[in-house]
Simulated scan of single mutants.
Amino acid sequence: MTTYLHEDRLQSVLKAIRDSGAARVLDLGCGDGDLFVRLALMPDLTELVGLDICTASLDRLRAKLRQLDVQAGKVDVRHASMIDPTGDLAGYDCAVLLETIEHIDPDQLSRLERALFRVLRPTTIIITTPNAEFNPLLGVPSHRRRHPDHRFEWDRARFRQWCGRAAVVAGYTASFHDIAGAHPTLGGASQMAVFTRT
């Protein structure tokens, strides 16, 4: 079941993809396909590749895709890591990381940064991640994270610092958005950065 906040998150990312004008999209950490299935049905997309390291999630996604009327050759689902992508995925219009970076060990973030901004180097990169400032509204105690598999959860200042530095170094501009709800001082349940290659 999709919660209101998750639906709002998905709609925000879909709008950012549409606004970018992308036709070829990478869904990095596609999981069971909450976003991927919606992208597969978008007529403006001509090529869609999903990567995930969880084979069970990919099996569930493939089962969903078999139920859809998707143009032959449009979608490709791969068991692979986003921090070690293959060169054939370079140069896509857009790469999306929907609530995935928080599952990566902090000491691996430099590898992710290199993979995104140096190896893949798409025209647009969209990253969403939980906003730690919003956790009290979700009943998450200060000593815990939202999910046991989260390796970290950043507040908005820390997220913007990481994204801003990565963007400048790699020749991108970054814009930031509170998504999945909107508290006047705590922001949204999630936060989104949209990077555009300059």
Rank of each mutant, 00 (worst) to 15 (best):
R78P: 01
L68A: 11
I104D: 05
D76I: 01
A63L: 14
L109V: 07
V140S: 03
R62T: 11
V119F: 02
E102P: 02
Q108A: 10
F117W: 05
N135W: 05
E133S: 07
Q67S: 09
G87L: 13
V119I: 13
R62D: 11
L98M: 15
I125S: 07
I83P: 01
G73A: 00
L97G: 02
A95V: 12
V96G: 03
P106E: 13
A90L: 05
E113G: 09
R121F: 06
D84H: 12
E99D: 14
E99T: 01
I101C: 06
A90K: 10
R118M: 07
T123P: 03
L120N: 01
R121I: 00
V75R: 00
D76V: 02
I125T: 11
I126D: 03
I101V: 13
V70L: 08
A95H: 10
S110H: 15
D88P: 02
G91V: 01
E99F: 01
V75K: 01
P130S: 14
A132T: 05
S81Y: 09
Q108I: 00
D76F: 05
S81F: 07
L89C: 03
L109E: 03
K74M: 05
G139S: 07
T123I: 09
K64L: 08
D107N: 14
I126C: 04
G87C: 06
